[in-house]
Simulated scan of single mutants.
Amino acid sequence: MQFIAAFELRDFLDTVVSLSVAFVLGTIIGAERQYRQRSAGLRTNVLVCVGAAVFVDIAMRLHGADGAVRVLANVVTGIGFLGAGVIMKEGINIRGLNTAATLWASAAVGACAGTDRVAEAVLATLMILACNTLLRPLVNRINRIPIDESVSEMIYEVRVVAENGHVEEARKALFAELKRVNYPVADIDLDSSAEDTTEIVATLVSSSVVASELNSAIDSLRALRGVSHAGWEASTSE
């Protein structure tokens, strides 16, 4: 059997240490994610961490450092696809970026363990935990600071709800009013999910606006026949 001929106890014990380190550190990272009820929790982070360690460890044993480097490049690419699976887009909002980044970092920890860089793996784990825990209060504090829309890049949407028989009229009026106040439209969508009305959503090209100018356009749109609602909203671009 090839197994008997190729088996070396010292190399096997080295692999046991590498994978055990990856398992423990992946568990630590995953436990924090599981506690916060993220989509990629304990088991996912452990699997990513141990899987990366296995690939890099076996490459080291078969082809040395050169083999490990080639596998590392493919691990980084592969985890990128896995991370894309936990990113969700809800309207103009994107969720899951931090979870995807944590998975990517877990793979890096596993790669360190697979190349027997245990100290580096531990250090990376501590950095990941610090990012996901210690920086959270700072993030919350920054998020509570009122946004100065005059200096921040924002996404502005103008929404008009019109009766189905007046949609085309409302759409043309929306373009005309936004053109009048010098806010060109980048994109426009129609949502016909309601039975009798359609929502027209116009995304502006501008990343900053003067509220009074948009309000002037909204007032004109509200006065149109068949329009039941008109308004605008802003959200951050990232």
Rank of each mutant, 00 (worst) to 15 (best):
L129R: 07
A234H: 05
D116Y: 00
R136N: 02
A108Q: 10
N140A: 12
L47I: 11
E157D: 15
L19C: 09
R225G: 07
R70Q: 09
L13S: 06
D57Y: 00
D14K: 05
I58K: 00
W104M: 13
T125L: 14
A130D: 01
A121M: 09
V86P: 10
D11H: 05
F23L: 11
A5L: 08
L224W: 00
I200Q: 04
F7H: 05
V56I: 11
V48Y: 09
F175T: 04
L174W: 01
V71K: 00
V16N: 08
V139D: 15
V69F: 03
F81A: 15
A170C: 07
T27A: 02
N74V: 14
V46S: 07
T99E: 13
E153A: 08
V209C: 04
S207Q: 05
A170H: 10
A176R: 01
V118K: 13
R159I: 05
S150I: 06
S106M: 11
I142S: 08
G231K: 05
G110P: 01
F12L: 12
D116C: 10
V21E: 09
L25C: 12
V76Q: 00
R36N: 09
A234G: 11
I155C: 06
G165M: 03
S150Y: 03
C49R: 07
R43M: 10
A234P: 00
E213N: 12
I188P: 09
A162S: 08
E169N: 04
R141C: 09
E8G: 06
I128V: 10
T115K: 11
L126F: 06
Q34C: 14
N140F: 07
P184F: 02
T115Q: 13
I58A: 01
V24K: 13
A194W: 15
A170N: 01
K179T: 10
G78H: 12
H166Q: 11
L174H: 01
C112G: 13
E177T: 02
E169G: 04
K89L: 12
I200V: 12
Q34T: 08
R159C: 06
V17Q: 10
S237I: 02
L174E: 00
N98E: 15
V46W: 14
R225L: 13
L62F: 01
S20D: 15
V24I: 08
A73D: 06
